[in-house]
């Protein structure tokens, strides 16, 4: 063995034994935005055995200020984030098995992704998917680590099934509207702080040092210089529908799924057909070009402009509509050009 992990093994709580355990583990990162990129890089450098990274989006210029795995070429080529992340991660550490999944993670996908996974790291940008992750975590007894960030503020919590309260215990409702990256922006140091808390907890779990887990809800503002660490264990609800005595996992019910979603950070609507099936991108391109539409494409997606809106079609059938005011307008464009 070379010196790659020597400084980490010199750190007594990990040591040789911890390093070996890390090597045997499989972590799932949901979302390859700023938090996903930061967590993925840390775990890859640390030498986790296997890393799956799932994301529905592609790289854009506005990502480069904070999404540390991506470079200008990825934005120019509109490379899907999962692919761009995996390419960079493999260059950083070829010993780690990195699996890239270009997908919008829903019920069906999460059930498949969870297979053989030891830990889920939340790097998503909305609570629809976090409640899904929370339910699947409880159902399969797999820990997950929440991270959220807006502006200079961030927070994190580690959910251990059977030990801590779950997200459903902590949040009695979904936040409506409120501040998002859209309205408040976000700065890199806040992202790094959240990711540092997440990946430190991840290393403890993967190296099986459970006693060292923080156990508190941590929150901070790196601009206003606040820090707080709150013990929330009293909020564990014995009647919780997700982690109580008689769980029903309400967010794994298909009826509770969102089929269209406004994406955080821009005027974008995602449309997800109820039955996903592969689109013949080349055929679609031909047909659009024959209507006089200027189309850009790569092996994973195609995009075209209609007035102020830009429509991006992924191979798996999902569509992103940029530059629209609302879901209805996006759906109109979708039906007009894609049947």
């Amino acid at each position: 063995m070379n010196e790659r992990y020597s400084r980490q093994m010199l750190f007594p709580p990990i040591g040789k034994e911890g390093q070996k355990k890390l090597r045997e583990k499989h972590a799932l990162i949901v979302g390859a935005g700023a938090l996903g990129a930061a967590n993925a890089e840390t775990l890859t450098r640390a030498g986790v055995g296997k890393l799956t990274i799932a994301d529905r989006d592609y790289v854009e210029w506005s990502n480069l200020q904070r999404q540390q795995l991506y470079c200008e070429g990825d934005a120019v080529r509109k490379t899907p984030k999962a692919i761009a992340a995996a390419n960079r991660l493999k260059a950083i550490n070829s010993e780690v098995e990195v699996i890239a999944r270009i997908m919008d993670v829903g019920i069906q996908e999460i059930e498949e992704l969870i297979e053989g996974v030891d830990l889920i790291i939340d790097s998503t940008d909305n609570f629809d998917i976090r409640f899904l992750v929370n339910d699947i975590s409880q159902k399969h007894r797999i820990p997950w680590i929440y991270g959220g960030c807006v502006g200079s503020y961030g927070l994190s919590y580690t959910f251990l099934p059977g030990v801590s309260p779950c997200l459903n215990c902590l949040m009695d409702k979904l936040p409506l509207g409120g501040t998002t990256c859209d309205t408040a922006g976000v700065i890199q140091p806040a992202i790094q702080m959240v990711a540092a808390h997440q990946s430190a907890e991840a290393l403890k779990i993967l190296a099986e040092d459970f006693e060292s887990l923080r156990g508190t809800l941590v929150s901070f503002d790196v601009w206003k210089n606040h820090f707080s660490s709150v013990n929330v264990s009293s909020l564990k609800n014995p009647h919780c529908l997700t982690c109580g005595a008689n769980p029903v996992y309400p967010f794994l019910d298909y009826r509770n799924q969102t089929k269209t979603a406004l994406l955080c950070g821009r005027d974008t609507v995602q449309i997800r057909p109820s039955a996903l099936q592969d689109v013949d991108v080349a055929y679609l391109e031909k047909s659009l070009v024959s209507q006089g539409i200027n189309v850009e494409s790569n092996p994973y997606l195609l995009s075209f402009k209609i007035n102020q809106a830009r429509v991006v079609v992924f191979k798996d059938g999902r569509v992103l509509v940029h530059g629209v005011r609302d879901i209805l307008q996006a759906k109109n464009l979708y039906h007009r050009f894609l049947g």
């Binding site: 949040m171 009695d172 998002t180 013990n231 950070g265």
Partner: peptide
């Protein structure tokens, strides 16, 4: 001491209280 949400309206503040407020955000 963590407050149950149902107690927010009736919990009276007094001089010298130490309060931590954590709000959830979705970005990432």
């Amino acid at each position: 001491h963590i407050l149950d949400k149902s107690m927010h309206a009736e919990t009276i503040l007094t001089d010298g209280d130490r309060i931590e407020i954590v709000h959830f955000v979705g970005g990432g």
